[in-house]
Design a protein around this nucleic acid. Structure first.
Lengths: 191, 191
DNA sequence: CTACGTAGAGAACGAACGTTCTCCGCGCGG
DNA sequence: CCGCGCGGAGAACGTTCGTTCTCTACGTAG
C-alpha cells in the first residue's frame, strides 16, 4: 500500500475515481481514502484540486501514449501502425470499466471554466493528432487524411462510451482502411 | 419575458446555462434568475434537478432533430441528404457559443451515476443512428456504412469543441463522401 | 368588505465540498 | 531521558447547492 510514494498513489487513485464517477462527483475525502494518504500530504503535493486534475490528465496522457506505443510494437508498416490505433481502441473499449475518453469527459465537465484543464485536453489531442499526421506523412498520403483518421478515433470513443457497444472500434477501423486506401490510390502516383 | 409559459422559459434558460457552463456548475438559483420564475414554480414543474436535466435534453433533442430536418429541406437525393448532416454540423460549429455536443457533455458529467441521463443520451444517439441508417438503406449501401457515418459526426463534434477549429466538419464531410462512394462502388452492382 | 387559496420572493436547512486547523503520537538530537 | 519538529487523522470552517419553508401580497368568491 505504501510501496509507492504519496504523489503516485494519489494520482493513480484520483485517476481511477475521477474517470469512474466524474471529477465533480469525487471529493478530496474520497481521494484521501482511496490513496491512503492524509489530506495534508495531498495538499502539500497539489495546492488545489485543479492541480490534482491536471496531474491526473498528464498521468493519463502518459498511459495513453505508452499504451499506444506498445500496441504498435513490432509493427513496421506505417499503414498497419495507423490501423493498430483502432485495435488499441478496441481492446480498451472491451475493458469493463471503460467510460469514454477521460480527456473528453474532463473537458465536458470543466473545459468551459478552467483554462488549465481545457489546455491540458487540447495538448493531449494535439499530440495524438501529430502522431497520426506523422504516420500519414510516412505513407505519403495527403495531409488531409490525418484529421479524418483522428476524428474517427475520437468518434469511436464517444460512440462506444454512450452506446456501450465496443464494436465502434471495428467500424472506425474499417472506415480508416477505406480512407487510407483511397488516399493512397488517389495520390499523384507517378512511380 | 412572461410571454411563454413557465415550463418553456425554465427549460430554455436551463438549456443555455447547462450547455454553457456544465450542469454541475449551474445552480437552481441561477436557473431561477435566468428564467424569471420562482423556485416554487420550477419545482412544481420539475420535482428535482434531474427531472429538469431530462427535460432539457429532450428539448435539445427536438432542436437538433428539427434543425437537421430543415437543413435537409429541399434535398432529395439520399446521398446529398447524408452529406447535409456535415454541413449542418459546420454551421453549428461556427456559432460562437458552440461547446460540443450537449448530450456527450451531459453523459460525461452525469452518465456514470444517473441512469436516466445515460438513457436520454443513448436514446438521442440511437435516434440519430436510425436516421442515418435509413438514408444509407435508401441508397442501397451496406448497413455497415451507417455506424461509420455516425462515428464521423460524433468525432467531428468533440474534435471541433476541443480544438476550437470548426473545420472538423469539413474533414468529416470529405471522409463521409469517400466512404459513401466506396460503399456504392463496392456494392454487388450487377445492374 | 372579508376570508381564503394561491403564488412569488427569498430566507432557511441540511448535506457535500474544498481547504485549513488542531491535536496527538512518533522519531530524532542533545 | 527530554524537547521538538514533522506527519497523520480527522475535526472544523466557509461556501455552495438542492430543496423546502415562511411570510406576505393579491385575486377572487361570497
Amino acid at each position: 500500500m505504501t510501496d509507492k510514494d504519496v504523489r503516485t498513489r494519489v494520482v493513480e487513485a484520483a485517476d481511477r475515481l475521477f474517470y469512474g464517477h466524474g471529477i465533480g462527483r469525487v471529493g478530496m475525502d474520497a481521494v484521501r481514502d482511496a490513496a491512503g494518504a492524509s489530506l495534508k500530504a495531498i495538499y502539500r503535493e497539489f495546492p488545489s484540486k485543479e492541480d490534482l486534475v491536471i496531474a491526473v490528465l498528464e498521468h493519463r496522457h502518459q498511459l495513453w501514449t505508452s499504451g499506444l506505443e506498445s500496441a504498435m510494437a513490432g509493427i513496421a508498416e506505417p499503414r498497419e501502425r495507423l490501423l493498430a490505433v483502432y485495435d488499441y481502441l478496441a481492446d480498451w473499449f472491451d475493458e469493463d470499466d471503460f467510460r469514454g475518453c477521460g480527456f473528453i469527459n474532463a473537458f465536458a465537465e470543466l473545459g468551459a471554466d478552467s483554462t488549465r484543464v481545457a489546455e491540458a485536453v487540447r495538448d493531449h489531442k494535439a499530440s495524438f493528432q501529430r502522431y497520426v499526421d506523422a504516420l500519414v506523412g510516412e505513407i505519403g498520403a495527403p495531409t488531409s487524411l490525418g484529421p479524418q483518421l483522428a476524428i474517427l478515433a475520437e468518434g469511436a470513443q464517444t460512440s462506444a462510451a454512450i452506446s456501450g457497444a465496443p464494436d465502434a472500434a471495428l467500424s472506425a477501423r474499417a472506415a480508416a482502411e477505406v480512407l487510407i486506401d483511397v488516399a493512397m490510390a488517389g495520390r499523384t502516383d507517378h512511380r
